[in-house]
Amino acid sequence: MSSTSQKHRNFIAEPMGDKPVTDLAGVGGVLGERLVTAGFDKAYVVLGQFLVLKKNQELFKEWMKDTCMANSKQASDCWQCLNDWCEEFL
């Protein structure tokens, strides 16, 4: 299992509050902008989507690919990030 990024650790270290969507692991500037365009401007909106998809990795990754053309790695990172955050704070 690979270790997680600094961004990942930062994100799951605290409640997400009003953090922008770019704070999610796997979501950088480009994906962030696409997500904002699609209406997902905050990390918590993406969390909502994540929860609506029942934390299902496959579906969430598919959704990421559809919505912001994320690649597989980015989508997995983002899923992992939200999943770990939920384990911690939900």
């Binding site: 989507q49 609506v52 998809l53 029942k54 299902n56 579906l59 598919e62 959704w63 559809d66 919505t67």
Partner: peptide, 12 residues
């Protein structure tokens, strides 16, 4: 075990 189908989850 599908979750709620909404406009954002439909395509998936």
């Amino acid at each position: 075990p599908a979750g709620p189908v909404t406009s954002t989850t439909r395509s998936v």
